[in-house]
Amino acid sequence: MAFAAEAFGGRESPALDKAREQLLAIVGVDGLRDAAATIAVFNGLVRVADGTGIQLDPNLTTASAQAREELGLNRFAGSANTDPANTDPANTDPANTEFSSIHELFSQQ
């Protein structure tokens, strides 16, 4: 997570160098490249999603409602692009989702 926090902006820094070395020691070169690829591609995905103003897909609007509320994601400016009423009725039953809350998701470990 420290590596992501230092690398997401695409700027070289001593803190990034340190985080890279720490991650390398734990996950090796291939793990470092996986992490870097993920950070890089989601940098791009963010530009595309924000720049084109896409809405959350209806099933995702339904399935993520509680998590968005709990994590404070609705305060992000991009939330204005999604109508919270544009949901998928097939996904409104909690039984249709594997986890009913973000707390439950992380308590599985």
């Binding site: 992501a4 926090a5 989601f42 609705n74 400016a77 692009n81």
Partner: peptide, 8 residues
């Protein structure tokens, strides 16, 4: 990453 970039 997406949270740091505040992507909804």
């Amino acid at each position: 990453t997406t949270s740091l970039l505040e992507c909804f």
